[in-house]
Amino acid sequence: MLEAFVFATILCGFFGILLKQNLVMKIISMDVMSTGVIAYYVVIAARTGLFTPIVYKNQPLAYADPVPQAVILTAIVIGFSIQALMLVGVIKLSRDNPTLESSEIEKSNTP
């Protein structure tokens, strides 16, 4: 069930990248897609349990798997830095293309 929602998020983001015309909307769609991917890692990590993997004194708990969570932390950081970089590029582009329609920008910038 949860997985289905996660995949729906990924696909929503993907089709947003395809169907949205505005560059900023495309970048936000990409963010939605990466949110879906991150959520998928969290869902996979929670297969074995939901508890934070911290050593407790005496109760053996069903811990969440820390590895995917640790890994996806890196991906989150990378993802947001790439988005920041892309938005800077979009700011530069918006000076000459105020509507930011990707098809227009593409037409004027392909030889």
Binding site: L23, G89, K92, N97
Partner: peptide
């Protein structure tokens, strides 16, 4: 820093990131 170079770069970053 020309418009074209930024667009080409953005396109590259988009495709590779997706």
């Amino acid at each position: 820093r020309s418009d074209r170079s930024i667009w080409v770069g953005l396109r590259y970053l988009f495709v590779s990131n997706v």
